[in-house]
Computed example of a mutant assay.
Amino acid sequence: MANQQTMLYQGVHIPRPVLNVDLHVLPDFTGRVVLYIENGKVKCDRRLLEEEHICALDTFIEMAREMELRIQEVAGGTDSDTNS
C-alpha cells in the first residue's frame, strides 16, 4: 500500500528519492534558500534576503514591460572608459 515514503512511477510504487543537504545557516534560521543541484548533488546554497526575489529572464522582461520600463543595451563592459 502507498504511503508518504513511496511514490507512483509508471504504475509501480517506488521509494521516494531523498536528497540529504547540509545548509550553511544558523539553527534558528527562518527564510528562503536557493540550492544549485548538479547530477543529484548540491553544488552550492545561498540564503535569499527579504527584498530578493527570483524569476526567469522572460518573466523579468514581462514585468519590466508591464511597468513600462525601457531596457537599453549598453556597449562595452564594466571596465570600459568612455572618457578616453
Rank of each mutant, 00 (worst) to 15 (best):
A2D: 09
A2W: 02
A2S: 07
N3M: 01
N3Y: 00
N3C: 02
Q4A: 01
Q4C: 00
Q5M: 00
Q5F: 00
T6G: 00
T6S: 07
M7W: 02
M7D: 01
M7C: 01
L8A: 07
L8H: 07
Y9P: 01
Y9E: 14
Y9T: 12
Q10N: 11
Q10V: 01
Q10T: 01
Q10A: 05
G11H: 03
V12P: 01
V12F: 05
V12K: 15
V12Y: 04
H13A: 06
H13N: 11
H13F: 10
H13S: 07
I14H: 02
P15V: 05
R16C: 08
R16P: 01
P17F: 01
V18K: 14
L19N: 08
L19M: 14
L19V: 07
N20F: 03
L23D: 05
L23V: 13
H24G: 04
V25A: 12
V25C: 10
V25K: 13
L26M: 09
L26N: 07
L26E: 12
P27I: 05
T30K: 15
G31K: 08
G31V: 04
G31P: 05
R32Y: 06
V33R: 10
L35A: 12
I37Y: 07
E38V: 09
N39I: 07
N39E: 15
N39K: 15
G40Y: 04
G40K: 06
K41E: 15
K41F: 09
V42I: 14
V42T: 14
K43R: 12
C44H: 09
C44D: 14
D45H: 10
D45T: 12
R46M: 14
R46N: 10
R46D: 05
R47D: 00
L48C: 04
L48W: 07
E50S: 05
E50G: 00
E50N: 06
E51Q: 06
E52G: 00
E52D: 04
H53Q: 09
I54A: 04
I54K: 00
L57W: 11
L57V: 13
D58H: 12
T59G: 08
T59F: 02
F60S: 03
F60G: 03
F60N: 04
F60C: 06
I61E: 13
I61Y: 10
E62M: 10
E62I: 04
M63Y: 13
A64N: 12
R65G: 11
R65H: 14
E66Y: 07
E66R: 15
M67E: 15
E68A: 13
E68I: 10
E68T: 15
L69V: 14
R70E: 14
R70C: 06
R70H: 10
Q72L: 08
E73T: 04
E73A: 02
V74S: 03
V74N: 05
G76P: 00
G76T: 07
G76R: 01
G77F: 02
G77Q: 05
D79K: 04
D79A: 06
S80H: 09
S80C: 01
D81H: 06
D81I: 04
T82S: 06
T82L: 06
N83K: 13
S84I: 14
S84W: 09
S84L: 11
